[in-house]
Structures are given as C-alpha cells and as structure tokens.
C-alpha cells in the first residue's frame, strides 16, 4: 500500500513540476492543481493508519479500536482541498483576466 501511494505521489509531483516549467499559463495552473493533489496524497500517507498501523484514537478501555483510520489526516486533507478549491477559482479568474489584458497565454509575454 505504502509503495503504491509513494509511486503515485512521485508521479503527481513529477507531472506537476513538468507542467509548471512550461511557458503556458494554463499549464502552470494545471501543474499547481496536480501539485496540490500530490500533497494531499502525501498527507494521507502520513496518517498513522498507513505509516504506523494505528490511529491516535482509544476506546473507553484505553485500547486502539479495530478498523478505524486516522481521522486527523482526513480533516487536514479536507481543509487543504477546500483551500486549493478557492485558490484555484481565483487563479483561473486571474489568468483569464491577464490573458485578456496581455492577449497571450505565454509567460514570456507576461512582462511589463
């Protein structure tokens, strides 16, 4: 499980960085999106369920309950998703405007 996740994270990061190094603004934004997905998956693997096998929860007897995933990483990911959702909407609007003002999608034209 950890290996599959690690490979997926690696692929997401590689794709993200490749896209971000292109000159097109749209590809840059797609790269940022992929990057945030990669980070979300990375946080997921940092949960106790994947790395150490037990979430930080105890039942009434003080023992770790069976079949419970680490809820904290899920909360963290949800927060990160919400934030990246809002930021993506903003960046898209901004790129659209910049595209209108500059008349090009090329970052090399985005100079004053």
């Amino acid at each position: 499980m950890t290996l599959i996740l690690a490979i997926s994270i690696g692929c997401l990061f590689a794709g993200a960085i490749y896209l971000m190094l292109r000159r097109s603004v749209v590809k840059l934004i797609l790269g940022l999106l992929l990057l945030s997905h990669g980070v979300n998956l990375l946080i997921f693997t940092m949960g106790d369920g994947v790395r150490r096998g037990a979430p930080p929860i105890v039942d009434d007897a003080g023992l770790p309950p069976a079949n419970v995933a680490d809820p904290l990483v899920q909360a963290l990911i949800l927060t990160a998703i919400v934030i990246s959702f809002g930021l993506t909407a903003f960046v898209l609007a901004l790129a659209y405007r910049a595209n209108q003002a500059v008349g090009s999608d090329d970052l090399n034209d985005m100079i004053e």
Partner: peptide, 19 residues
C-alpha cells in the same frame, strides 16, 4: 456571465472574480 458582461476583447476590468 463574464462574456455577457464584457463582450469586447478587453473590457473594463474589476476584481469581481475574486473569491
């Protein structure tokens, strides 16, 4: 709505798109 509000190529810009 943006194309409807600002039909020209370079319409007056504003920050309405800002979440």
């Amino acid at each position: 709505e943006e194309p409807l509000l600002f039909p020209t190529e370079r319409g007056p810009a504003d920050g309405e798109g800002a979440p």
